[in-house]
Amino acid sequence: MSDTAYVQLLNLTAGAVLLCAVLVLWRRELAVIIRLFAAQGVALAALIAVLAWHEGSPELAVLAAGVAVLRAGVLPAVLRRALGTAREGTEPVREVRPVVNVAASLLAAALLTLLAFAVSRPIVELAPSPATQAVPIGMAVVLIGFFVLVTRRRAVSHLVGFLLMDNGITAVGFLTTAGIGLIVEVGVALDVLLALLVLQVLTGRMREAFGNTDLDELRELHD
């Protein structure tokens, strides 16, 4: 693969990762948000595949396939199950009233991306290469994921926010070090899966106990 094609493919996939994160902020239907998250998983896997192709590393290719299965297949499926039980209930399957409205959220996402670019400049300068130049995008995805956690009220949106952060961290990891070892990556992936399963159960319990999953209702601790 020629260098220009590599750079363009890398930028394309990285851009897709960021775009999916921003779109999560834009859309309100929970089902669409999950679909966007799955799309981001695909983009992330593609990004790793491009890196694997460029470096000619079969290990990275295996990892790309693993990321695709986990982040575009398993995790969205779990999320959909969490949502599926919600559909049987009476609560709306939309993010009705986010803490910060959509327009302001998009503006904030722009600012966070700027911040990510500004703050990762030293990292890029350390070893300027096409891969490290995409690092700010990973950082931006982390920040946007955090922003989703802060501003969205529904439990499923929170799960997606948490997973967006994890996607961002994974992207930064791959872009800076070209893979952090198979074992570590598998460990992290299983960790995330486990956390998500626990949170899904927790969401179900919340719904059973309170009738909805609006986290703003949870304000007091009781025995």
Binding site: V99, L143, F146, F147, L149, V150, T151, R153, L215, D216, L218, R219, E220, L221
Partner: peptide, 14 residues
């Protein structure tokens, strides 16, 4: 007691 506020503190600090 608001979860969002606590998370918000984290984001703002970061």
């Amino acid at each position: 007691g608001s979860v969002h506020r606590y998370l918000g503190y984290g984001l703002c600090t970061l």
